[in-house]
Each structure stands twice: as C-alpha cells, then as structure tokens.
Simulated assay, not measured.
Amino acid sequence: MHWRERAACRGVDPDLFFLIGNSGPTLEQIDEAKAVCGQCPVVEQCLNWAMRMGRVEGIWGGTTEGERRAMRLRGARQSKDAVTVVA
C-alpha cells in the first residue's frame, strides 16, 4: 500500500491544504491543515516526499512551502559547515 492511501487527509477537501494568501483567514486554514497532519500516520513520508520534490505548493507533512524552504536552507548550510570543518 502506498503511503498516500493511509494519509489522514484522504477524504478531506484538498482546498484546505492549498492556501490563498498568507494572512488573516489563511493563518486559520494553515492551523486546520496542520491539525489534520498532526493526526496522520504517514506525516513523515509526506514531508520526505515534499522535500525531495523541491518547490511544492501547499501543506505537506505538516509544513508550509516556506517552512520547507527554510528546512532546505538550514540543511544546505549545515552541509557547507560540515565540509568546511572537514577541510
């Protein structure tokens, strides 16, 4: 069985996870979407997929696109620092 078939968001209106804007009602929408992710048995697989895919819109693995971008940047910096320490 594919991880998506076990996702908590199956059967939930997909519009909940694809945001329009970044303030006001959208902040409430983000919280609602993340609450669904918080109950999901495959949240890690979902986040890993989104991170591998790169720029993916919407809430995936309990994170926004901006949060995933920040995670990638932190990972890139840590990798650079590790190379610098070794060198």
Rank of each mutant, 00 (worst) to 15 (best):
R4G: 09
R6V: 02
R6K: 11
A7I: 11
C9N: 01
G11P: 04
V12H: 08
V12I: 15
D13R: 04
D15R: 02
L16C: 13
L16E: 07
L16F: 04
F17Y: 03
F18G: 06
F18T: 10
F18S: 13
G21N: 02
N22G: 14
G24A: 08
G24V: 10
G24P: 12
P25I: 12
P25F: 10
P25L: 10
T26G: 03
L27Y: 14
D31F: 05
D31T: 08
D31E: 12
K34T: 05
A35H: 05
V36R: 03
V36N: 03
C37R: 00
G38L: 10
Q39N: 15
C40L: 08
P41R: 12
P41E: 12
P41F: 07
V42M: 02
V43G: 00
Q45C: 06
Q45T: 02
C46N: 02
C46L: 07
C46T: 05
L47P: 06
L47W: 00
L47I: 10
N48T: 12
A50I: 04
M51A: 03
M51N: 00
R52V: 09
M53H: 00
G54S: 12
R55D: 14
E57I: 01
E57R: 01
W60A: 04
W60D: 00
G61T: 00
G62Q: 04
T63D: 02
T63M: 08
T64S: 03
E65H: 03
E65L: 13
G66V: 11
G66N: 02
E67H: 00
R68L: 11
R68W: 01
R68Y: 03
R69Y: 02
M71Q: 11
L73R: 15
R74N: 13
R74I: 09
R74K: 12
R77P: 07
R77Q: 15
Q78W: 13
K80N: 09
K80Q: 11
V83C: 07
V83Y: 10
V83G: 02
V86M: 14
V86N: 09
